[in-house]
């Protein structure tokens, strides 16, 4: 067999050179893309990844600002301690109850409001704006507002119920464990419903009108249309609402801090409040960061469960 040199095969050489150039261009393009993204990557690493990593690193240390001399690496000791700590377990329980109640209420109320606001009626624009109003109120202000409403001496709720003859004397709404927890749930729900309404309204707007027409042709009633058209199409927005509101509920701090301070006793001492207290009041950065990581882990697990259970139900492409 006669060996033909590359030089004698111009087609081959050209092809090889083109391949080489393409490969080098591809590499160069990738590099160029990384260079372009570098500033953003640096910012993300510096402002997000580093604090998260550093926070985890601190959670592995005994680190109380009041006793810097005791600073040392303790591994998972902080996690072991808080998982057997009565205060932590109680705050976890309170957080779970608070989240269950508030997320359920938010879902029901936001879906109801979204369905109502999706209908055509006079003044719908104004109503949509009004519904959004609570969302504009910061958590601390929200807490202060509700603390005045629930105030045992001069509260608006007491005034209203008393003037309607429903109570014979002013009540201490924030002094009983049950009513204080319900008051905290209510204040939180009031603040968070608008955001969920927006998401669900957007979801409702994307449902094709023909589906409702077809359902009507099939003589489906309102309930059937809701169950078989609206709800399946809203599964993804609902999933988003579920995930975000569960995270919000687990991380809620400001409203409760102002409204009840976690009391009476530990009745409203949610896990985020205990975290802030541990870090800022007790200056225990080691244990406080361990608390924060436990919150993160819980919300992550819940989100994964939500996604696995609900995501496929809302997929119509598969």
């Amino acid at each position: 067999m006669r060996i033909v040199p590359y030089a004698a095969r111009p087609g081959l050489v050209t092809s090889y050179l083109r391949q080489l150039r393409q490969r080098s261009l591809t590499l160069s393009d990738n590099l160029f893309a990384y260079v372009l993204n570098l500033p953003a990557l640096v910012v993300v690493l510096a402002l997000i990844a580093y604090p998260i990593g550093y926070s985890f690193w601190l959670s592995l240390h005994r680190y109380n600002l009041k006793r810097p001399d005791l600073y040392r690496f303790v591994g998972i000791e902080n996690y072991r301690e808080i998982l057997t700590d009565r205060v932590f377990l109680n705050s976890l329980k309170v957080s779970v109850i608070f989240s269950l109640l508030s997320v359920s209420l938010i879902l029901v109320l936001s879906l109801t409001f979204a369905l109502l606001l999706n209908e055509t009626f006079l003044g719908r624009g104004v109503m949509r704006s009004l519904v959004l109003l609570p969302w504009a109120i910061p958590g601390v202000v929200n807490g202060m507002m509700w603390s005045w409403i629930f105030n045992a001496k001069i509260g608006a709720l007491n005034g209203l119920l008393y003037s309607l003859g429903l109570i014979d004397a002013y009540r201490q709404w924030l002094s009983s464990p049950t009513s204080a927890l319900l008051a905290a749930v209510f204040a939180h729900v009031w603040n968070m419903v608008p955001f969920s309404v927006i998401i669900l309204l957007a979801g409702l707007a994307s449902i094709p009108g023909e589906l409702y027409d077809a359902a009507r042709v099939d003589r489906c009633g309102v309930f059937q249309r809701f169950m078989h058209v609206t709800l399946p199409w809203l599964m993804h927005p609902l999933l988003i609402v579920l995930i975000l509101q569960t995270m919000n509920a687990f991380r809620t701090f400001d409203t409760i801090y102002v409204l009840t301070g976690g009391g009476p006793g530990e009745a409203t001492n949610v896990i985020a409040l205990q975290t802030v207290r541990t870090v800022l009041d007790f200056t225990d950065f080691g244990q406080g960061n361990a608390y924060a990581y436990v919150i993160m882990l819980i919300t992550l697990i819940i989100s994964i469960v939500y996604v696995r259970l609900l995501y496929k139900r809302g997929s119509f492409e598969t």
Partner: peptide
Amino acid sequence: EPWYSEWESENQKLMQQALTRQI
């Protein structure tokens, strides 16, 4: 004692629990 403020803070919760007859 360096632990005083934590102790005070935790005691307040305990006393509130007693005043509301939880313990």
